[in-house]
Design a protein around this nucleic acid. Structure first.
Length: 495
RNA sequence: GGCACUGUGGCCGAGUGGCUAGGCAGAGGUCUGCAAAACCUUUUACAGCGGUUCGAAUCCGCUCAGUGCCUCCA
């Protein structure tokens, strides 16, 4: 019996429909995801997005695609509400070099993502590393008539662009409404229209990060970097562009406009957006002050949390919902996930070591068919716009079988060798390789060693030297030496 | 105001025209020196009202409740 792997469908934000996934040049897939602005620690909402795309990346590879996964680091150009560059602002505040800020929070970001067992992107370009390309694209946009210089800054002319193309296709916005709705916003004096956005900004005298161009000493606009870096590494047309829902407008909308304005192509064919994390029904965000930092959730060191949760528990919790749904954080939900994850990871631990062997069981077609169905369902679930929650449900069905085999309530013979091997491959493939879950050795070694040393001490006291020797040999095999002191037993790593 | 989205059993959370999601919690049972685990069985679900249909949690309309984006956010 052959498993049907089926066809992958993805929900495309651009068309608001589920579509068959057809890469431009199979087996290659180009995927660009908007990375973090490294002016502070990543919060859990960021983690959710990158975790979701990690699973998407993993699954595409699992079903045989050769993925080039590009995720940027924004280290310049992202403005805060005061119109200041976020990195510059933070650098001034902390009296550090902007690049120190960038390095510090990039390190934090990488550390956190590796704790959650995400695969690093294949290319992680930074905005500052692509200044020349950004300046070049700005020139091209001026050349093509979609941008204008004003007082040392360069703006994208949304009104003009909208006449030739359509601005707002991604977010479903009507530009006339937006235009008539204008009030004077920051920098409004330089812009022809409030919807116009900066490609290049003239820097104030006290602005630290600045570069020389024909327009002014300044810095690039935020939206530009993604257009530049995605097309540089994936081409003018590529497959997937991802990011958080809150980037849809204006960030991704502007990106499309820049790409069309420069190359006549909109960039990605499929736009995927992850939904927000909420706390008590409200969006988790830095500005609302209701966000946890990953290390706070892991340690439990936060007023809203009853206890800490391991990175894999958090990963599991996040994957139990679909990436396009909001997910609410609460102690009870986390606790339920913690227990559920223990169950799943016990299943992983068991089947990793389990081998099929002949026993008294007689082949039961219904059993093997059921198992085949579970395996097939994992593909169906992931093929349906990466439905990790449903996939996990199917994995739990397999956990039941694994546990039954383990306790001998189900015989190997009943399911047959073929179904067993398929279940083992599929279960581990999906839990470990696709969902990126792993068994966490959450064992306190110190207390384990103390327990053994207690046994050692008792055996010595009872003059059971055979047992003493055995325990000492076993510890030694693990690189630990027991040391008999006058008044106590100690241990050390073997030199 | 404009544009989207959501409302599922005690809780979380999939499903989107007929076929058991799953997890957590609860109840009963099997197993067991005790305990735990495991396995089996199980509990009032689809916000409300109307419509389409042989049949709707699933499609359509209205109402109610909530959320996001429209200004920086993953």
């Amino acid at each position: 019996m052959q498993i049907k792997v089926g066809k992958l469908k993805v929900f495309n934000s651009l068309t608001r429909q589920k579509e068959d996934f057809q890469p431009l040049t199979p087996p290659f897939v180009g995927m660009y995801v908007c990375g973090p602005t490294v002016y502070s620690n990543v919060h859990l909402g960021n983690v959710r997005t990158f975790l979701s795309f990690d699973v998407i990346n993993r699954y595409l590879r699992y079903i045989g695609y050769k993925v080039r996964y590009v995720r940027n680091i924004t280290d310049v150009g992202h403005l805060s509400d005061t119109g200041e560059d976020k990195i510059s602002k933070k650098a001034k505040l902390d009296q550090l070099e902007p690049m120190e800020i960038v390095q510090m929070y990039s390190n934090d970001f990488h550390h956190v993502m590796s704790q959650f067992n995400t695969i690093p992107p294949d290319i992680e370009p930074s905005a500052i590393g692509h200044l020349m390309e950004q300046i070049e694209m700005t020139r091209k946009l001026i050349e093509n008539g979609y941008a204008y210089e004003s007082n040392g800054s360069v703006y994208f002319d949304v009104g003009k662009y909208n006449k030739a193309h359509k601005y707002g296709i991604l977010s479903g916005r009507n530009i006339e409404d937006l235009m008539s709705d204008t009030r004077d916003l920051d920098g409004g004096a330089d812009k022809r229209n409030s919807l116009d956005f900066a490609l290049w900004k003239r820097a104030d005298p006290d602005h630290i990060m600045r570069w020389k161009t024909e327009w002014s000493d300044g810095f690039p606009g935020w939206h530009l970097e993604c257009s530049v870096m995605s097309t540089k590494y994936l081409g003018e047309a590529f497959d997937i562009h991802g990011g958080g829902m809150d980037l849809k407008f204006p960030h991704h909308e502007c990106e499309i406009a820049q790409n069309v304005g420069t190359y006549g192509k909109s960039g990605a064919n499929y736009w995927l957006h992850t939904n927000m994390l909420t706390v008590n029904g409200q969006k988790m965000s830095k500005s609302l002050g209701n966000s946890f930092l990953p290390h706070e959730l892991i340690s439990g060191n936060h007023e809203l949390l009853d206890r800490g949760y391991s990175p894999m528990t958090i990963r599991f919790f996040i994957l139990q919902s679909h990436y396009a749904s909001t997910l609410d954080f609460s102690n009870v939900a986390l606790e339920a996930a913690r227990r559920g994850y223990v169950r799943l990871s016990n299943g992983m631990r068991l089947i990793e070591k389990m081998k099929w062997k002949e026993d008294e069981g007689k082949l039961d077609e219904r059993q093997s068919e059921q198992i085949n169905k579970f395996c097939e369902n994992c593909y169906h679930a992931m093929n349906d716009d990466f439905n990790t929650a449903l996939t996990i449900g199917h994995l739990f069905n397999m956990v039941k079988k694994i546990n039954s085999l383990h306790t001998r309530q189900l015989k190997f013979g009943e399911i047959g060798q073929e179904a067993f091997n398929r279940m083992k491959d599929t279960f581990l493939g999906f839990s470990r390789d696709v969902l990126g879950l792993k068994v966490e050795a959450d064992v306190n070694y110190q207390s384990l060693i103390n327990t053994i040393l207690g046994e050692y001490k008792d055996a010595k006291y009872n003059r059971d030297f055979k047992r003493v020797d055995k325990l000492r040999a076993e510890l030694k095999a693990e690189g630990i030496v027991a040391k008999d002191m006058k008044d106590k037993i100690e241990w050390a790593f073997e030199e």
